[in-house]
Structure formats: C-alpha cells, structure tokens
Amino acid sequence: MHEIGVRETVQFAGLTFNWETLVMTWISMAIVLLIAILATRNLKMVPTGAQNIVEGLIVWLREQTLTSLGPKGEFLCPLIVTLFLFLIVANWLGLVPTMASPTNDLNTTLGLALFIIVMVHTLGVYMKGMHYIKHFFQPFPIFVIINVIEEIAKPITLAFRLFGNILAGEILIIILLMLAKWAILPSVAWLAFSLFIGGVQAFIFTSLSLAYLANAVKDSEE
C-alpha cells in the first residue's frame, strides 16, 4: 500500500503530471483488456469460468442501459461496460499492497466526469438538434440560471463523490495497517468493506452517467 499524499510528478511541455496516477491508470486499463481477452479467448455456447462472469456482467449492464436510455441507446452499451469495468478495477487496485487507486486522484474522477458530460451534450445536439438546446432556456429567464448551475454541478458532484469515497477508504486502511499488531481483524473487515464500497461506487458513477445520458438520448415521451 502506497503512502497517500506523496505524489511523484513529472513535467512535460510545461504541464505537470502525476506519474503515479498515470501508471496506475494504465495498469487498470491493461487489467480490463486482459479480462476481455481471457473472457473471449475460447468462447463456448455454454459459458463457463471467466466467460460466464463477464457475459453475466455484460447482460446486466446492457439491461441497465436499455432501461435508462431505451432502444436508441443500445449503441452506448460498450461504453457503459468499459466504464464500469475500468472503475471497479481502478477502485480495487489501491487495496493491493504497493498499488494505488487512480480514482483516489481528483484529476482522474474529474476527467471521467467531464468526459461523460461532454458526451451528454454532444449526443443531445446530434440526436435532438436545437430542441435539446432550447430546453435549457425554458422557462426563460429564471430557469436559465438554474440549468447552468445544475450543469456545472453535475461533473463536480460526480467526480467528488467517487474521489472522496475511494480516498477515505484507502487512508483508513493504511491507518489500520499501521496498527496491525492489535487491529488485524478490523483491518480485514475494513478491507472486505472497501471491496464492497469500490463496487458500489463504480455502480453509482455508471448509473448517474446513464441518467445524464438519458436526457440526451431518450425521447421525452418515452
């Protein structure tokens, strides 16, 4: 388990990068790719092992996507599956000794949140045209301010919720491990609880992303 708060940074083209976060993000992506390769390497009609687990997860996430977005949103299923897998791997990575969760860095969670919000508005304009833009100004003028505040708050709350929960969990695990001589059982219990929290936070982030995407993709009468 790494020491939280000590972040190694590198300078490139006048920009500062958190080297640890970059490395852990790439490791998380590599694990997701490995899961996909192992699950699809020897596909069987009757799935077993890793194929069974991944297929069950994909079916469940597809159902969540179609429920939230309707049939028109099925093209977003690969994105939702990838997002959830990345988040759950990234959230759990910090529970491995010497590793750190990339999601304990606000840069990662804010980047993901901004990506979702940009996609929401891009799809909204593409699929609904001026009608999508028009609804932000109705009724005018009071709700214009409210809508602007709401849109600004969406990525902030989405990012801080995930970041805060993962960071707090890792800090507490480190504290318990420092007291491991007499706190072995609490450490194990909190580790198991952190696994649960990591999964829940991945689900919450994905579900909220679906809710935001529904405003852009789903027809108002659906």
Rank of each mutant, 00 (worst) to 15 (best):
T103Y: 10
V125K: 10
V10C: 14
E170L: 01
G14F: 07
P141G: 09
F12N: 07
I53Q: 10
L69W: 03
Q138H: 07
G73V: 04
D105Q: 00
G111I: 07
L162F: 10
F137T: 09
I35P: 12
E63F: 06
I175G: 07
I145T: 13
L33R: 15
P78W: 06
F163N: 14
I80P: 02
P139W: 09
L85T: 04
M99P: 10
M24Y: 15
L106P: 06
C77N: 13
L112S: 02
T103S: 09
W92Q: 11
G5C: 04
M127Q: 11
E55L: 09
P47A: 08
A211N: 09
E221N: 12
V81M: 01
T108N: 06
I4E: 15
T25Q: 03
Q201M: 08
Y132I: 05
Q64V: 08
I88G: 08
L185G: 06
F196Q: 03
I88S: 02
F12T: 05
A30T: 10
F17Y: 14
K218P: 03
N104G: 10
M99E: 13
K218Y: 00
G129T: 03
A90W: 10
L114M: 07
I4R: 15
C77E: 15
N165C: 04
E20L: 14
N42W: 11
A100Y: 10
I31F: 06
T40I: 01
L210W: 10
A214I: 03
I166S: 10
T65Q: 11
T9W: 03
Q51E: 15
S194P: 08
P97M: 02
R161N: 02
L43F: 01
P47W: 08
E151L: 14
I58C: 12
L185M: 14
A39L: 12
M178F: 12
R41L: 00
E63V: 10
V10A: 15
L177W: 13
